[in-house]
């Protein structure tokens, strides 16, 4: 028996003027790479890469559960609040974790809504990062479903959410990882997936900001799976085209949760993405 190299700790930071107790996992050493999970899920989506010695030999992978997600508690008074994630709160949270952990210009790797906020940060706060890996990320994605389906008293939002997002998982994904990926959605707290989708499907402010991203200072690499019905290759290509200098990779056999649903299939694309990012020591010199 042996423990995995992933360690988890809790960090309390201030977001929008109130404390948030954030669960943070990390593995590896070297260049910091901050990893953001998708809507309705948590850090477990990054478990395979954090256990990949070839990745962690020279990269310190850090992932955290957004407030309301995974092992991060919702804020005090949540019982009377409607959770609706906003671009501003999401940005505040990511920056608070970076400051709280004292990270020096990490690479930011985000998937889905994490990819969306990575591009927002590339436009608005590039000085905090060394580069961006935007996975299943697009400029804007209106809902092709009713987000209110996923938070109602007469049905289980997690089970419905999992059944919906299964549409975004590739048939090439190993069954065990398909179901591990869906389990996170099934476990999601009431209204959390809906609140994430509110951010993802209603805020189109990124569209006008893409052109101001300076990839000469902070490279942007976009990765998309062919089986992603939510952020299709066409969506990702349109987004990458709008960012001068951005690069794009299309994964023919993967879907919307590549690092979780099919780790072996995603691995070469992530290694390639990391190779496109500045090395931390060179950045500091």
């Amino acid at each position: 028996m042996s423990f995995e190299p992933i360690t988890g700790r809790y960090l309390t930071v201030s977001v929008e003027g109130a404390p948030r107790r954030i669960y943070v996992e990390e593995a590896g050493q070297g260049r910091p790479v901050l990893c953001l999970h998708t809507a309705g899920a948590d850090t477990r989506q990054w478990r395979h890469l954090m256990n990949d010695a070839a990745v962690t030999a020279s990269n310190r992978l850090i992932a955290f559960d957004m407030p309301w997600h995974g092992k991060s508690l919702p804020p005090e008074g949540f019982e009377t609040q409607e959770y609706l994630l906003t671009t501003e709160a999401y940005i505040d949270t990511v920056l608070a974790v970076i400051d709280g952990m004292g990270l020096d210009k990490p690479v930011l790797a985000g998937c889905s809504m994490g990819g969306r906020i990575a591009l927002q940060l590339a436009a608005l706060h590039p000085e905090k990062f060394s580069g961006f890996i935007a996975i299943e990320a697009s400029d804007f994605q209106p809902a092709w479903y009713d987000i209110d389906w996923f938070h109602r008293p007469d049905a289980h939002g997690g089970e419905m959410g999992a059944a919906l997002v299964s549409a975004n998982i590739s048939p090439f994904a190993p069954e065990v990882e398909r179901w591990n990926t869906l389990w996170m959605f099934m476990q999601s707290g009431p209204g959390v997936f809906r609140g994430d989708l509110s951010f993802y499907t209603k805020d189109d402010s990124l569209i006008a900001r893409l052109g101001q991203i300076d990839t000469a200072q902070t490279p942007v690499h976009v990765i998309v799976g062919a089986y992603d019905l939510t952020c299709t290759p066409e969506d990702a290509e349109r987004t990458a085209r709008a960012i001068p200098g951005a690069t794009l990779a299309v994964m023919d056999e993967l879907g919307h949760f590549p690092m979780s649903e099919h780790p072996e299939g995603f691995r070469p694309f992530f290694l390639d993405a990391l190779a496109k990012m500045p090395v931390a020591t060179a950045q500091a010199a």
């Binding site: 092709w144 549409a167 590739s170 048939p171 090439f172 089986y227 299709t232």
Partner: peptide
Amino acid sequence: RPAPGFHDVFGFVK
């Protein structure tokens, strides 16, 4: 292993 879009009933719609 259906082609993209044909792998899910919602894909048909999409």
